[in-house]
Write a protein that binds this DNA or RNA. Structure first.
Length: 213
DNA sequence: GAGTATCT
DNA sequence: CGAG
């Protein structure tokens, strides 16, 4: 595994997990889960997804991309919850704000093949992930798909950060462990990933302040 | 700029 | 589960 990967067990305690879950329910009520499909083949993903924030990641037969509207309702994505902005400020170690929160729902038997998050323009910002619900077997490898992988269990309330060289590492979800959490009445797992999509310009130094009269 | 986050 |  590459440097820059960080797993923070139990970052969110039970009450905060319930708050986050309520936020997710509200988001889904506004921006329903949809089934993405593979570019070119149109083969559906097993997970369902939606987004919050200025931009959302979508995939269909014409490709992967970020866009500012839900692909089915054509409505803007709901705002990114304050709790998640606070998480980003706490763990991202990066000056700008996140622009996207991809919400993936993993039902029983669903998975996510090994891939790299590479649809963003700015790779200096990390990807910050939150797990809610059933445990998941997560893998992280290296820059090449064939590089050796490390596997860990991601549990409800855990945060994972893919930063530095791990930002471009292959990763994925092998499987969900049914019944390992009772947070979700319907079972399964939500994963939230916070991303910076566009490049961030460092603020112009405020000479009046830094010069200090 | 597409595209191996699919699948076997 | 790794490889492609």
């Amino acid at each position: 595994m590459l440097r820059g990967f960080r797993h923070i067990r139990g970052y969110f305690k039970d009450p905060q997990q319930l708050e986050l879950l309520e936020e997710i329910r509200r988001i889904i009520a506004q921006a329903p889960l949809f089934s993405p499909a593979m570019p070119r083949t149109g083969k559906p993903f097993s997970v369902q997804m939606t987004n919050a924030g200025a931009l959302g990641w979508v995939s269909d037969i014409s490709g992967y991309r970020y866009q500012d509207r839900h692909p089915e309702t054509a409505e803007p994505w709901p705002p990114l919850p304050a709790t998640l902005r606070a998480l980003w400020r706490d763990v991202a170690d990066w000056p700008g704000d996140p622009e996207a929160c991809l919400i993936n729902y993993y039902g029983q038997g669903t998975r996510m093949g090994s891939h790299v998050d590479r649809d963003e323009s700015d790779f200096s910002a990390p990807v910050v992930s939150v797990s809610l619900g059933d445990d998941a077997i997560f893998h992280v490898g290296g820059l090449r798909r064939s590089d050796p992988k490390t596997r860990i269990v991601l549990s409800s309330g855990d945060v994972a950060v893919l930063g530095g060289s791990a930002r471009k590492a292959y990763h994925g979800i092998d499987r969900i462990i049914p019944g390992s959490s009772d947070l979700l009445t319907e079972g399964g797992r939500f994963n939230l990933t916070l991303r910076r999509v566009t490049t961030y310009q460092n603020p112009v130094p405020d000479l009046d302040r830094t010069r200090g009269t």
